[in-house]
Nucleic acid binder design. Sequence first.
RNA 1: CGGGGCGUAGCGCAGACUGGUUAGCGCACCUGCCUUGGGAGCAGGGGGUCGGAGGUUCAAAUCCUCUCGCCCCGACCA
Length: 581
Amino acid sequence: MRYSTYFIHTLFETPKEAETPSHIFLLRGCYIYPVAAGVYSLLPLGHRVAEKIKNIIRDELNAIAGLEITMPVLNPAELWKKTKRYFDIGQELIRFKDRKDREFVLAMTNEETVTDIAKHFLRSYRDLPVMLYHIQTKIRDEARPRGGLLRIREFFMKDAYSFHRDFEDLDAYYPRIFNAYLRIFARCGLNSIPIEADSGIMGGTGSHEFMLESPNGEDRFVVCTHCDYRANTEKAEGVKSTRDESIEAPPPREKIATPGVKTIADLVQCFGAGEADFLKTVAYDADGELVLAVIRGDYAISTAKLTNHLKAVHLDLASEELLAARGLHAGFLSPVGIKGTRMVMDTSIGKRDLFVAGANEIDMHYKNVLFGRDFEIDEKADIAEVREGDACLKCQQGSLRIGRGIELGHTFKLGTKYTAPDSMDVTYLDPAGEQKRVIMGCYGIGVERLMASVIERWHDDSGMIFPITIAPFQVAIVAIGKNPAVVDAAEKLYEQLSSRYEVLYDDRDESAGVKLKDADLLGFPIRVVISQKLLKENNVEMKIRKTGEVIICAQHALEATVEQIAEKLQPTLEGLPYMAE
RNA sequence: CGGGGCGUAGCGCAGACUGGUUAGCGCACCUGCCUUGGGAGCAGGGGGUCGGAGGUUCAAAUCCUCUCGCCCCGACCA
């Protein structure tokens, strides 16, 4: 491809809306163009990268018997009502009516349509297992798009769905998709970290997120310093030390006036004690029901864990009205004396810990509150946010470090969420002629986010550094000067290399500086330079973008050298944290 | 949805506080000359409803009200 006839308009200055490296360079390099908040066009360079990523995904999924299909974005609302997602999902799901007043939604994933296909066609155990996937536009009205391509409202997602005879078969299949994911990210040049993810009802090893550790990521996960425990903070659990003070004769509960003292920080100041000496009670509105969550003062409540524990669809802080209806007051809440209200207690509270707690009366607290004596709660669960430095629950030896990362992909053992009788009701006949329920898994990867993540990982001050597997062009040729001999030689090299590689030949009448800077910005893995000086010795120069290494070689040896370098730049698939198949 | 910031040429900015010629600068773009190893030089040129609406005024990019858009932090995120 000749630069002069291609579509590249690089920017010297950074558009002010861009802050993260991938966003800055994608805009400056003319890979993308914004259309609206969180909506982008992919320009020729960006399009090429996206297509290459898609092809890697296809390659790996086809290798594990995945079958590519295409399902529509436009879905009848009826289908989404069957699975109840129509009601469970908030405003991210775009709903509208067609000209005949029929309700539609814009699919944000395709569980409904794919399960409908499964229900229609899969009848016998002989039809299972099967994995169907597609790479299709997804539309989500995100509350806050951010970071350029990192979180957008319309994007390509590869979503795959597998159907199985039973859980054993799903368990047997799962490592194949897990390992394919590791290979996909590795082939894109990324070292992904699989972490245990919040899997709602499934539990166990039912769900993994594949993270790229990055300061610009919006997810948090824990990593054990000692063992291989890695988990999303929404699920991660650390060891909690209950104090269990050995009090022979616990002092009696005592009421104390605490005017205006509402938060744990206020209490710490007022009582001159540590955060762990207080009982924190937070009131939630769980699908309309008032729930009190009780935790030790030095922990924060994880709304994700609490939501899962309660199996709630929507969880919000309780409104003043909801509290007032029970005669309760935020800031002075406690489980002491509460009856007829659902309460959940975190495992951080020990049987023998003395606490300061609210008195459920404005401006009043209790001292010396003891679980089992001053209040009772049957429902005990881990609802605490894990903390940096907490001991690892799995190995009991390491401590937990909290990392920030970008979620590249998600694998999920769905089970019967969509095939259940109260959902889409999908069954098959087993060899004995018995009707059995189909078991499902689903697996997703966001294409644009993956592209942006690669740049987050691979860039320097000058620009992007694409892995050779997904670079829009593997080789850039820069001719310096207009000397006919140089131009002639460059044309020849271009022709020669084009037969085996994707080459961008910078044939513009631009100064050397401009061309070299552009080649750096755009991130081509191998740069070939031809100039008068080099030509005199019958040489050409090659520079490896990733390492900065410069190689001068004889013109006739160019092709062989490029091949050598290209080979060296291939990512390795050895040593990934594969799951045993 | 809460908090903060910004809207003037394709991009980056000045002008606004203190209203007043024809709204300016750099980059990019077009023409010509010249130049070619790290974002050259000279000369000429095109491009603006100052985000939008309403108001104040003899006069509004500038002051007031409303509104729309974009970015960042947080909440939220099948």
